[in-house]
Amino acid sequence: MALDKAAVAHIAALARIRLTEAELEPLAAELSHILTWVAQLAEVDTADVAPMTSVAAMRLPMRDDAVTDGNRRAEILQNAPQAARGFFAVPKVVE
């Protein structure tokens, strides 16, 4: 599977990673190389195989629908690059 520059730019936009024009070509080659290598899985017959969805053979446990933690606003905001009046602060999104 070969990716071109436009495809890489599209994936990077989905992943919210800014790439420069100069980075697109080498990344297209690297990613295509990896995708070609993983494509060997096509050789494996998986027609009657159910996909693995859980590593351990166990059911997800249920717990009471109860609050077990909270009231840590100050602690949490301490790590924010920018906070104001008890909120995370971000660039303006609504005009």
Binding site: A15, R16, R18, A80, V90, P91
Partner: peptide
């Protein structure tokens, strides 16, 4: 937004992309 590095941008998406 929540922790670690932030690279300022003109919009929210701009900030996400430059930070990452």
């Amino acid at each position: 937004v929540k922790y670690g590095l932030r690279v300022p941008g003109d919009s929210l998406d701009d900030m996400y992309e430059l930070t990452r």
